[in-house]
Design a protein around this nucleic acid. Structure first.
Length: 588
RNA sequence: GGGCCCGCAGCUCAGCCUGGACAGAGCGCGGGGCUUCUAACCCCGUGGUCCCGGGUUCAAAUCCCGGCGGGUCCGCCA
């Protein structure tokens, strides 16, 4: 590759590819194999090597030779010693082929790539501009957002940022469940209490949450209220089917509680830096839902039972329970409207990605089954499930008013950050509020993003807000790099031969993996992979910072190379933080 | 009762999809490091029947079967 050619977008994968091909060819040549051989690459060998492959060991039995013998033979036939990126190839242990990269060459490749792509470093064209609708958060407007919703929002938001970064044409939607029994209960309670306004100074979603807890209690104590609630629901649904209604006050009650609650949600989400492109209301799909039910009935896929309820049998899909599409009074159910919503999404995008709690697994199976019956490809609906966040006293429940709100979580994080800010010297000239807020957002986002979505979280204030292991640790590494760059001179030429020490190379090597980890995060739909990567990046920078002098280095050439390394690091870190939505601080 | 998910160091978790070399981090605990680029940091040490029992394999935390423990779903709720 010559200097004026564009460097690879993904230096690490490109390098692995080169080495893999070389070894594969060697295997085929050495053992006269015609079919391409799988060459697994161990990306993190537990020894002093950068890459390794156990291919000789699996081959050994086939060819009837000792594994080490096979490995030696492969190495002899390979052209790895001619690859400029490779420094050393060794056969070690029971038969591993271990490869050490040529540090100056590999570093040059990586840094060129980082500087060439800049803010785009890490961005691979995975999506080719294809449209995707990503739905996340979608909390019921019956109370404030709690940690569970936070998990949904943050998984969704990080995924959304990653999808945009990898060239998907993403629209992010918030599905507002503005109808259904819970909201009907709220509307009833609201009217029963004489339509109280949200008190001055109270966050509206918190007010609605209190109202909801009261309503839930009333309904539990007096089962006859069920009927009243159903009347409310009926009226609201009729209204959305375009029928005349005299129940104006009921309609307005629904709208009021939903609007107020949503205002509160938006405030919290804005604070957390979670953004949606569009709010879609469930009530918009009542008409479509009714049409779908009619269609299923016409085609004999659904049946109307004697009591009037319409049901579909899903035994062919391995689901024993029949799915109810309309109540016996003819009103639609959540699932029915959800089917309509998904059909609408699939008309507008190739793939619809939903972020949902693991408790929705059966519902999604049912949804996909009906989509399939309707001739739609259910694989186009791609659901990211996440497990619950449990409190020491049990699962969170909006109905029981048992939850930790995102607002509280952010406030507590900010309070703890504030303590640190106040004892800091370097922050004398900064606005302490602003710094603490950014630290809090970073801490909260990272605490939630770092856990694999399919693992339940046991919530604990101390663990979740341990600044040493979380977002602030990452922000701190970035700020340290920035403060070096603040005082560093402009560098034009540098030589990566001055970056061969372990600390520098370990940092560079990890930086080079960024594009691969972004791709991994998108493919697996797992923000925790990116979070883990970023934490490791910060850790390696902190080690480098501690042991390798930059501005204090007296040799000008060495200093120049190190400054460029810090510059490259800050670029990669910035890209990673942008994807995780962790605010950047120049000083902390 | 059935489906799905989880079970790794005292604690919180990564690795499991795609099986490989002494199982990794952080917290905690013990020790060390600021007149030198920000100590919200770094370095060294400590710590594990990878829930249990079988099976497949040259090789199992990883794949398969069976248990045990926890979560969750099985509404004319959303």
């Amino acid at each position: 590759m010559t200097e004026d050619q564009a460097p690879p977008r993904d230096p690490y994968s490109t390098t692995i590819g080169t080495i893999r091909t070389s070894i594969r060819d060697a295997v085929m040549e050495a053992y006269d194999i015609k079919e391409p051989v799988e060459v697994p690459i161990d990306e993190e060998p537990p020894v002093d090597a950068d890459l390794a492959t156990p291919v000789a060991m699996s081959l050994a039995k086939e060819v009837g030779e000792e594994p080490r013998e096979v490995a030696e033979k492969i190495v002899e036939h390979s052209d790895l010693d001619e690859v400029v990126l490779v420094d050393e190839v060794k056969v070690e242990g029971p038969g591993f082929i271990n490869v050490k990269l040529d540090r100056p060459t590999y570093s040059a490749l990586t840094l060129r790539s980082v500087f060439y792509y800049g803010p785009e470093f890490g961005s691979l064209d995975l999506g080719r501009g294809r449209p995707v609708i990503l739905e996340h958060t979608s909390a019921n407007p019956n109370g404030p957002l709690h940690l569970g919703h936070g998990r949904n929002a943050i998984i969704g938001d990080v995924l959304g940022r990653c999808l945009v970064f990898t060239n998907y044409d993403v629209e992010i939607q918030y599905y507002v469940n503005d109808m259904g029994k819970q909201i009907a209960m709220l509307a009833w309670k609201f009217i029963q209490k004489g339509r109280p306004k949200v008190p001055e100074g109270e966050k509206p979603d918190h007010f609605i949450g209190e109202l909801y807890v009261e309503a839930a209690k009333d309904v539990e104590e007096d089962p006859e209220l069920e009927e009243v609630v159903e009347r409310f629901l009926h009226a609201y649904e009729k209204y959305h089917l375009g029928e005349e209604t005299r129940a104006k006050r009921i309609i307005e009650a629904f709208q009021y509680v939903v609007d107020e609650c949503l205002k509160g949600h938006n405030e919290t989400l804005a604070r957390l830096k979670v953004a949606h492109d569009r709010f879609v209301f469930e009530s918009e799909f009542v008409e479509d839902a009714v049409e779908i039910v009619e269609k299923l009935l016409e085609e004999g896929l659904a049946e109307k039972r004697e009591d009037g309820a319409v049901v579909v049998n899903l035994e062919d899909y391995g689901i024993d329970k029949e799915l109810v599409l309309t109540r016996s009074d003819g009103t639609t159910l959540y699932t029915t409207r959800d089917i309509a919503y998904h059909l609408w999404k699939l008309e507008r995008a190739g793939v619809a990605i939903d972020v949902l709690g693991a408790d929705h697994k059966l519902a999604v199976q049912q949804l996909k089954a009906v989509l399939d019956m309707l001739g739609e490809n259910p694989d186009r609906v791609d659901v990211v499930f996440y497990e619950f966040i449990h409190l020491p006293e049990g699962s969170m429940s909006t109905r029981k008013g048992r939850y930790v709100t995102l607002d509280e979580f952010l406030d507590e994080a900010k309070r703890r950050a504030m303590e640190k800010v106040e004892e800091s010297d370097v922050l004398k000239d900064e606005d302490p509020e602003e710094v603490a807020e950014k630290v809090a957002i970073g801490a909260v986002r990272f605490a939630i993003a770092k856990v694999n979505p399919n693992k339940p979280i046991e919530f604990d204030w101390e663990k979740a807000l341990d600044f040493r292991t979380g977002g602030p640790f990452i922000q701190y590494a970035y700020a340290r790099a920035k403060s070096i760059l603040d005082e560093a001179e402009e560098i034009e030429k540098f030589d990566t031969r001055h970056l061969t020490d372990d600390r520098s190379f370990e940092l560079i090597y990890h930086m080079s993996k960024f594009p691969r980890y972004v791709a991994h995060t998108v493919h697996k739909r797992r923000p925790d992979i990116l979070a883990e990567y970023t934490y490791e990046l910060a850790k390696r920078f902190n080690s480098f910072y501690e042991e390798v002098p930059v501005l204090k280095e007296e040799d000008e050439e060495v200093r120049a190379a190190r400054i460029k390394l810090v510059e490259a690091f800050s670029q990669v870190m910035e890209n990673a933080m942008n994807l995780l939505g962790i605010p950047k601080l120049e000083r902390m």
